[in-house]
Amino acid sequence: MRPRRTDPGRRDRLIDVTLEVVAEVGVAGVSHRRVAARADVPLGSMTYHFDGMDELLHEAFTRFADRSAERFAEFLGAARDRDEAVAAVVDLVHELSDPRTDGERVVMYELYTLAARDPRYRAITTAWMARSRQELARHFDPQVTRRLDALIEGLSLHRALDDDPFDRALTEDAVRALVGAPGRTA
């Protein structure tokens, strides 16, 4: 009798691989077969670990949103004052729109598309936005926080999708104008 193979991290790996597949082919291209093959696990592992594709996608997008919120907290958590918080927001916009993060951005857009139609996925984005605003609120008042959260999304989207993306100076000017901080001195 062949010894049984143990793989305690398999479920987590399947979730991470699902995010990779979403980044490559979108939600419409995700299948149990494709995820299992990419993760190098038997197809039966999919139904062992997940009740269906919706559970797998929900888990994957929840993980994505949690990781994104953690990254947001890393950027803003290091800021000791308002000027450093402004600089952190500018850095965050440029990180989110960097071509090296194209896969993550595609996953984010796929999540937004699901959230537009399905309340279960909207709950993920709502929780994610709340966490982002909580980090911003450490440095800015509630009205500014809400507007700044939207500005980060919009600036990141425009920088990522524009053939001629704007530079850091424009981002910093926009953030400073929104938060009521004095302009740059150079």
Score class of each variant (00 low, 15 high):
M108G: 03
V86I: 04
D81Y: 06
R82M: 06
E153Y: 05
L148N: 15
G77C: 07
D81K: 11
G154R: 15
A69C: 03
E74I: 01
V175K: 07
V144H: 11
A60D: 10
A23M: 14
A130Y: 15
V107Y: 00
R71A: 04
V35Q: 08
A177Q: 13
R159G: 04
G180I: 07
F75A: 00
G77E: 01
V93D: 05
L57W: 03
R105W: 14
Y109V: 09
L157F: 12
L43M: 05
R38L: 14
L19Q: 02
P165W: 08
R105N: 07
R13K: 13
R63G: 05
A181W: 03
T113E: 13
D83I: 10
V17D: 04
S156M: 03
R168D: 09
A79N: 01
G103H: 09
R146I: 12
R13I: 03
M129T: 14
P8G: 13
P42R: 09
R82P: 05
A137R: 15
L161A: 09
E172L: 05
R147Y: 06
V90N: 00
S156T: 08
V107S: 00
R80S: 10
R2K: 15
F140N: 02
Y109M: 08
A85H: 00
A174F: 13
S45Q: 06
R159V: 12
A123C: 12
F166R: 06
P142W: 08
T125H: 08
A115M: 06
G52T: 00
E135G: 15
R11E: 15
V179L: 11
F50R: 07
E153P: 00
D66T: 03
A78P: 05
Y112I: 08
L111E: 01
R67T: 06
R138E: 06
S45P: 05
V106G: 00
R80W: 07
T113D: 08
R100F: 12
T113G: 00
T47R: 15
A36M: 01
V89P: 06
A87C: 01
M46Y: 05
R2N: 15
V86M: 04
V175I: 09
G154Y: 14
D118G: 04
S97M: 06
D102L: 08
Y48A: 12
A177F: 08
V93R: 04
T113M: 07
D98I: 13
S68L: 12
R5D: 10
L157Q: 11
L178Y: 07
E20C: 11
L96M: 07
P142K: 05
I15V: 14
D54A: 13
R2F: 14
D163K: 09
S31H: 11
D16M: 11
L178V: 14
G77H: 01
